[in-house]
Design a binder for these strands. Structure first.
Length: 271
DNA sequence: CAGCGCCCCTGCCCGC
DNA sequence: TGCGGGCAGGGGCGCT
């Protein structure tokens, strides 16, 4: 479900109600996620203050004085603030009871998400240490992508969806970025010129920034920290628009499976 | 070691 | 109405 804009939207929504607040209690209703939720989580967090909440790629990092809770929303996860009178629904896995009377509630039907605990500095955690740069970081530029892609034959769409290259670009925004940059999703990453990578960097930033400003994309079930959908769906150019006219040339948009994921593109505008 | 499939899992939509 | 197949915002893991 959530790519960078949806995780960022979630972060911004929950930040005022979680950061610098104390966790009074933690209720784990269903510990089954991608990995089991640590059995000691409630004991570890009870009575502790949340120093900061940050995003790294598609992870949310809740930092405490004695360690960090890592949270990933996977494909179907959502996090929202509820009040105590709101009854839990099926697939509500965890409640964090806050000192302001609010409850932070994790919902994840497909269970591809994760809640982990680490006592070491979080950038050193094995799932985070090898991540590529943030798309809005200055080190993510045309020279970086050009250098990383030399002698690599994989499809450009798979390349930019690889979190070791750049974080946060998932299936929707990969298709959308490649459309804006005029690059065919199956083009070999190693054959793309520096100038075209410059366009791609700009396209990725433009799409992610616009999506964040719209509160993310809700295709089926994404909701922000307050239970509301995102509105970027109406701005999508190609995603899930097979057969519809290309916004640029009006030819029919096509769908192709690249790396086991649906990709949407215009065969005329993207080469 | 790069790169590709295979899974993990539930829900929903579509066609028969 | 019921059921099987396909597909879904991710990504770790185990092959070759």
């Amino acid at each position: 479900m959530p790519e960078l804009p949806e995780v960022e939207t979630t972060l911004r929504g929950i930040l005022p109600h979680t950061q610098q607040h104390i966790i009074n209690d933690v209720v784990v209703r269903d510990a089954r996620l991608r990995w089991p939720i640590p059995p000691q989580l409630a004991t570890t967090l009870r009575g502790r203050r949340v120093d900061t909440v940050q995003r790294r790629g598609k992870y949310l990092v809740f930092s405490f004085g004695h360690g960090h809770m890592l949270l990933h929303l996977g494909m179907s996860g959502s996090l929202r603030l509820v009040t105590a009178d709101e009854a839990p629904r099926p697939h509500d896995h965890v409640d964090w009871l806050l000192d302001n009377g609010r409850i932070l509630r994790l919902h994840d039907p497909r269970r591809f998400g994760a809640v982990l605990w680490t006592a070491e500095p979080w950038p050193q955690h094995e799932l985070l240490s090898a991540l590529g740069p943030e798309p809005f970081d200055a080190v993510f530029d045309a020279n970086y992508l050009f250098a990383k892609s030399r002698k690599r034959a994989l499809a450009i769409k798979n390349f930019i969806m690889d979190s070791h290259i750049v974080v946060g670009v998932g299936n929707i925004y990969a298709s959308e970025s490649l459309f804006l940059a005029g690059i065919h999703p199956q083009r070999e990453a190693g054959t793309i010129t520096r100038a075209r990578y410059q366009r791609l960097v700009e396209a990725i930033r433009q799409v992610l920034d616009a999506a964040i400003r719209q509160g993310g994309t809700t295709l089926r079930d994404f909701v922000n920290g307050h239970g509301q959908p995102g509105y970027f769906r109406q701005m999508l150019n190609v995603y899930e628009k097979e057969g519809m006219p290309c916004p640029r040339c009006a030819r029919r948009l096509r769908r192709l499976t690249v790396g086991q994921r649906s990709s949407y593109f215009c065969a005329h505008c993207q080469r």
